[in-house]
Design a protein around this nucleic acid. Structure first.
Length: 558
RNA sequence: UGGGAGAUCGUCCAGCGGCAGGACUACGGACUCUGACUCCGUCAACCCAGGUUCGAAUCCUGGUCUCCCAGCCA
């Protein structure tokens, strides 16, 4: 695997930069759940370190107590572990460094590189200028270091109201890079911090805290997303002013975007708070907890992150690639079972009433080591409604009147009669005959059937609920908010389909929460770990199987 | 109309002066007790215009388009 970041690191290693050391970090702010975009960053940072016998830290960037919580810290740690990465004993918090950062700020003030500014937020904005016009100096810019120092100490001591004063870097109000126009370094915040309580009432800003935290931890390569490219001069400026012995290199890459979903924490939070989804772990969410609950494996997500590559250009990955990755993983490992989602009753007229046979069925067609189980077969069965058509189009080769098909691992059956509801005309039951000579699903005479259907026995199958998930949004790019259109207008009303009268084969009674199966011919499903209980099984559809019949049907009917 | 960054098949990624390649998707076909899997095959791209060169996706010049930046968010 090669990309521009690995190229840079390879060169650094070759030049013996950093003494041949590679040390990265993953620095989430605990203000939301991790999503698959974070997975890209996690795989990159931990992967880079592992490849070069280096280390990767986990550091919570907790400099804004008003948006952060320990619940987010808990979930982030558990998601990273689940994904398969280990930060060892290197769990850090920017808040660990608050005292050090404060002392560095004092240094800056003493060197005349920072000053306390009494301008209001509105005034600061005015003085900043615009994209095309330079800003102008704050009237407080030239107050003495002594005065700034005194004020800064008193800011820390809690003598001033929120918003009344800030500490600013003294750089260049006419810089074409707005980030360099005397950026705010510290602000007063009265919100108690989830880790430091009310010990502090001044908090460092990202641009100031991040580079120094990296430096303190001895980070060699500080990898972040493209929008921080403009911040790099400031990252370097801060480190250049101070006497630090580690100056990490910031490298930016393009964040992950997926079609048919949104990836910003703000928007995901909005979906959660407005009840458009059941929570951060709703299986429709692109969050790691959502994907996990949906049935995605860590392996498949890591594989996905590897395949999408790392580059600097903005891109949108087709969610079909993610689906490919999970199918690929599940296909090789997961047991097959039979489940009927929308049952159609089938009576085998010539099968003895009351008789039950146990038919041996392998769990995996290509891998005997996965084992097998017995499936009960009896006179009354269920098949899938969509597997029968009274009036079949030419390319439909499932069951229809007079036609013979195979019931998987069971018998050949032939449809002899169709029972319809007198009122609606809807097909409610089928009568079939079976060929006793085809036990196990094959015939001695070698005659072929065009279709194999999945089925369950009426008496011995057990009820289950199934949730079918589709794209959360109807639009490839819901972020395209043309005019006043909000991204939520593109929410897919059919993103969740709840099926309550499904039947599954009896072995599933003992299924463990979170366990994954292929429901033959339907897709991959997993037992929901939240809403499923012993008496009431609930399965989530992780992903459908590829379905060439669906494609044909769609094409013909349109 | 300031600054920063980026433009290669429908999508993503490679190419680093010498035959534009891979993955996903789509479309054909083979196989099949899953219309699955697997296998084989097909379609499909260098933003534009000049220049340098025997030779340019790659180097140079000039355009065009897209993204990011005016939080006391990260």
């Amino acid at each position: 695997m090669v990309d521009f970041i690995r190229d840079i690191i390879a060169e650094d290693l070759k030049a013996n930069k950093n003494g041949g050391r590679v040390h990265t970090r993953f620095p989430p702010e605990p203000n939301g759940y991790l999503h698959i975009g974070h997975a890209k960053s996690i795989c990159l940072n931990f992967g880079l370190a592992a490849e070069s016998h280096g280390l990767c830290n986990l550091r919570f960037d907790d400099t804004n107590p008003s948006k952060e919580s320990t619940e987010y810290i808990r979930s982030i740690k558990s998601d990273i572990k689940w994904l398969g990465f280990d930060w060892g004993d290197r769990l850090f918090y920017t808040s660990d460094y608050f005292e050090k950062l404060y002392q560095y700020a004092v240094q800056l003030i003493k060197k005349g590189k920072a000053y306390v500014c009494d301008l209001s937020p509105e005034e600061i904005r005015e003085y900043r200028g615009t994209l095309t016009e330079p800003g102008k100096d704050s009237p407080y810019r030239n107050r003495s270091a002594e005065e700034s120092l005194d004020l800064f100490e008193r800011m820390r001591a809690g003598e001033f109201k929120e918003v009344s004063r800030v500490l600013r870097a003294k750089i260049d109000m006419s810089s074409p890079n707005l980030n360099m126009r005397d950026p705010v370094l510290y602000r007063i915040l009265r919100t108690p911090h989830h880790r430091t309580g009310d010990k502090w009432c001044i908090y460092p800003m990202y641009d100031y805290a991040h580079c120094l935290s990296d430096s303190i931890e001895g980070i060699t390569h500080s990898i972040c997303t493209l929008e921080f490219e403009d911040h790099r001069p400031l990252y370097d400026w801060v480190l250049d002013q101070l006497d630090v012995d580690c100056h990490p290199q910031q490298i930016e890459f393009a964040r992950l975007n997926l079609n048919y979903t949104v990836m910003s924490k703000r928007k995901l939070l909005e979906l959660v708070e407005n009840g458009h989804v059941s929570g951060w772990d709703d299986p429709r969410m692109p969050t790691l907890s959502g994907l996990r609950r949906r049935g995605y494996t860590p392996e498949s997500i890591r594989n996905f992150c590897e395949r999408i590559g790392v580059a600097k250009r903005d891109s949108v990955i087709d969610v079909a690639l993610l689906e490919h990755c999970i199918r690929e993983d599940l296909n090789r490992s997961v047991p097959r079972v039979m489940a009927v989602l929308r049952p159609l009753r089938v009576v085998i007229d010539n099968y003895p009433e009351g008789q039950v046979e146990e038919l041996d069925s392998p769990y995996h067609p290509d891998d005997p080591s996965v084992g097998s189980r017995k499936i009960p077969f009896s006179r009354v069965l269920y098949i899938e409604q969509e597997d029968f058509l009274e009036d079949p189009p030419k390319k439909f080769f499932r069951l229809s009147p007079g036609r013979e098909v195979r019931l998987r691992y069971a018998y050949y059956i032939t449809c002899v009669d169709v029972v319809k509801d007198k009122q609606s005309g809807e097909v409610v039951e089928l009568h079939c005959t079976y060929d006793p000579e085809t036990r196990g699903g094959w015939s001695r005479d070698g005659r072929k059937v065009k279709a194999t259907l999945h089925w369950v026995s009426e008496c011995d199958s057990i009820p289950a609920g199934v949730r079918l998930y589709n794209h959360l949004f109807t639009k490839e790019n819901p972020n395209e908010e043309k005019g006043n259109i909000d991204f939520k207008t593109y929410l897919n009303p059919n993103s969740l389909e709840i099926l309550t009268s499904c039947r599954v084969e009896p072995v599933l009674a003992n299924a463990a929460p979170g366990s994954r199966y292929q429901f033959e011919r339907l897709g991959y499903f997993c037992l929901d770990s939240v809403d499923s209980s012993d008496g009431a099984l609930v399965f989530n559809r992780t992903v459908t199987l590829r379905d060439s019949w669906a494609k044909i049907a769609k094409k013909e009917k349109l």
